[in-house]
Amino acid sequence: MQVQHIMCPVCGGRIPIEHNDKVNRCEYCASPVLGSDQNRNCSRHPDRLAVEVCHVCNEMFCEEDIEYRVADYGGKLFTIVNCDKEYCVDESQWAKPLNREYQQLVNMDWADNIDNLILRVTGLGAVLMMIFELVFVLSMIYLQYFTTHSANLPMFFLPGDIVIVLSILGNLLSAILLQTALQVYIHERQLGSGIVLLIILVAEAAFLIGRGLYFNLLINPIPWLLPLLFGAFTFSVILVFIGSMMATAVGYKKHKQFRSARITLGLTAER
């Protein structure tokens, strides 16, 4: 029977059957599918099920006959697979062999659950801080231009100049806080970002309380504004604080794991 259209099981694209005894690639996404007469076993060990397709010769192999390499395509690192035939190895020389041992030693799946929690706690705190700063700007502008409190707000040349400049600085600080809070999710950066997060948090808190006093918010005309702002601020500070403490603790564990992996494989001079 002549099959006219085979749909790619990955993307639904059209697959032209060029080889009956070899892997065919989807025209669209390059995913491999079996040729119509093709055996599913390793081409060198006919009794074993194949697990990979060589990217050079497109033949199927078992785990024993292949090597993995990391290749750079325009700054994106991809894993490619080649079999151990001389030609295929030669053709793959440009890519760097993947260091499987190191990869196994620095496997950090154990931290998945706690990392998810840390990301959510710090991330939520940082997002709230960001929203808080945005609301803070708006309420300060409101106080400056629409209420009698404007007399209590500092200025250099024009009414509101100090308020706006300091508020933009506050927005920037909270953006940096958010940036750092997201980094706790990346294994290598967790320890560093946990510590930096603590420092930024202290700076942000000091800067905000300083601004509040400088803007004379203690005597502002809206009675509920100060408790609301302070409550929201405290809540996000607590979240970020807890998250950064956890990130520092877990990150330190990972740091030790990275170090011992490098020492085990002789990748570093220290011991």
Partner: peptide, 15 residues
């Protein structure tokens, strides 16, 4: 999350 061997992406705030 794994930067060392295989990662292409990272979280970057486009400040």
């Amino acid at each position: 999350r794994y930067r060392p061997a295989v990662t292409t992406t990272s979280l970057v705030l486009p400040i």
